[in-house]
Nucleic acid binder design. Structure first.
Lengths: 347, 347
DNA sequence: TAAATTACCGCAAACGTTTTCGTTAATGCT
DNA sequence: AGCATTAACGAAAACGTTTGCGGTAATTTA
């Protein structure tokens, strides 16, 4: 007997409420109520039902239940990518509270692509998920798909890369301040020729980080050199070539402030290739959740976001609403603080 | 009007098959069939239906559909942890094919804990998922929960950390060979005092990797020193202290072969703390999918598993079965090859 | 021309829960 | 005793799809 027929046989003797009700000479509704510990059922029958259910390993069909109750006990996490320490830590935070609430977690990756994000969001028009935790992709400049699904009553909580136009809670970090501090750190270490590497500019975090950088320059009367403000995309080879151009130009910077980890890694790669010594010839500081930052050559100075806590808080806000629908998700920013880890790359 | 009442209003005018059928003066079944492109429906009405559905942004209720069809278009991925490059790359691979098939991906983390794995698996007794892709946690030595759900007809495909007792497909890598090669690489670089750092021994991959190591020692007539075969657990401080003990003992090894990335990182940490020069005083080689391996100080020699491909293949096998139930998942190992990246830590 | 086929479509029964609204018997109250 | 209340349970209608079956015209075939 192969696995397929075995499955079919098993499915024949599937145990559901009807089966239990026949077995115990009770009605389906009584079984259902007994299992949900309804007060209208006597304690005696409750234990009878529970015992048989336990013995037969009954577990309710989630789709029947979801269909009837109009709720899925599932939340969706929509992120740009997953091979990224920041997002995996966020997921860890989310999972820690979802698990506690007995909720299930669907993961969707946009790969930083607007079209994908769009089609993913469209999955959610029909109740597959009770709520969304999301970080928008760099590719999206039009937020109408998010507006619409939010208007339709789907709870959304944004984290890190938020959508300011939508009236909901946004879990973010002190991007402006930490960028200011990072830049100031470079300045105080003797740098005045500071370049800024960032991703495309539509994300709120990117603009905030960049303006923190600019503010620090202004504070110390350092003129802004537009050639040193580089906008990269998700196209890695392109980013690398831009960094290479920057570091081989006649008028080079002496330090780099990167708004995302990947660009700092690219910088390390290019420096290795061009034999540029970090930190002697170039100092590097970046936003990053890399676990190996301290082990790099040289160890990398980072601004580290509290990723786990971000996920936890985002999930907590969402569940607060899911458990008490009357509690509308407040329209506010929750701002957590990042940590500056000074290491050898900015010595 | 707050978001909650708005939601309720919207829900009032919810568009389902019934709504479409009223609007078009057709029966519900005709609408359903038209949308599924049934041949019994004329092309004319098909376009009418499709146009209205498109216009009203109809999307079928997944729970009603799943309940009726007895399939969920959802697969579950069960992994020990997610803040780990190997597993995130695997997920990327899985997602790439799930997306193509329009399937949804549930993620569950066992945190290497048997009890959690058990309760997660019990979630799946009722059709919430059509299939499982899984890497077992180090904590599980009893496979009955997996046996049972597999017997009940739930398709499972294992990857990396497999369960040999269950008759299904296992996507693995050439652990024995690559461990042998890694150890041989150390030997050829002049090492004879080679320690092996591994996790607890119940996992098939761990035993294979260790026996690859032992085989290489045997081949080169190097006696085995039991003190140099260290079994670590998921308890990081404990692992670190064991490594510290090893590296401060009177009779130290001159190189380390680590079966998992984390132990190599711990080794780097300890060496930094104790001022032990890698590779001069200690060579290090490890299984790892670290993106920054080349940037570490010193750059880390790794055995790198084709993680993305592993995920892709695992998902492909599963979907082959899901799409053609008559195709039973074969009871076989699919063995992919790992790559040895020689870097400075074994110079 | 009668019969058989085809092209379309509707009815209604599932799928397995949850929940509203009874119903019955037993108990409490005056 | 007569009435109201309560405790414990059942019948049946939802939830929104999918699908087997049946039906009616129109068309083809013998």
């Amino acid at each position: 007997m192969n696995s397929a027929t075995f499955a079919k046989n098993k499915r024949m003797s599937k145990i559901d409420l009807k089966y239990l009700s026949k077995e115990l000479n009770l009605s389906i509704s009584t079984i259902s109520r007994a299992l949900r510990d309804d007060w209208e059922i006597s304690e005696k029958t409750k234990v009878r039902v529970r015992e048989l259910a336990e013995k037969l390993n009954y577990s309710p069909n989630p789709y029947a239940s979801s269909l009837r109750r109009q709720s899925s006990e599932t939340i969706a996490v929509v992120i740009p990518e997953i091979a990224n320490n920041f997002f995996t830590l966020v997921i860890n935070g989310i999972e820690s509270v979802a698990r506690e609430k007995n909720y299930h977690v669907l993961i969707y990756l946009t790969h930083e692509d607007y079209e994908r994000e769009l089609s993913i969001i469209n999955y959610f028009q029909n109740g597959r998920t009770d709520g969304i935790l999301m970080s928008v992709s760099v590719g999206t400049q039009d937020y109408r798909h998010l507006q619409e699904i939010h208007q339709n009553g789907m709870p959304i909580v944004f984290f890190d890369r938020v959508c300011p136009e939508i009236e909901t809670t946004r879990i973010i970090t002190d991007d402006f301040e930490s960028s200011y501090n990072a830049t100031e750190h470079l300045i105080k270490n003797g740098c005045r020729r500071i370049a800024c590497l960032s991703m495309t500019d539509h994300l709120s975090i990117e603009t905030k980080r960049k303006s923190g950088y600019l503010q620090a320059l202004a504070k110390y009367d350092i003129p802004v050199n537009p050639d040193w403000i580089i906008e990269c995309t998700n196209d890695d080879p392109l980013s690398i070539s831009r960094i290479r151009m920057l570091l081989t130009s006649s008028h080079k910077p002496c330090s780099i402030f990167a708004t995302v980890e990947k660009l700092a890694i690219h910088t390390y790669d290019v420096c290795k290739e061009l034999n540029i010594n970090i930190p002697r010839k170039l100092k590097v500081i970046t936003f990053s959740n890399l676990t190996t930052a301290a082990l790099l050559n040289p160890s990398l100075t980072t601004i580290t976001q509290p990723a786990f806590e971000i996920g936890k808080q985002a999930a907590t806000v969402l569940f607060k609403h899911l458990y008490k629908k009357r509690f509308a998700i407040p329209n506010e920013d929750i701002v957590l603080k990042s940590d500056l880890h000074i290491r050898n790359s900015t010595l």
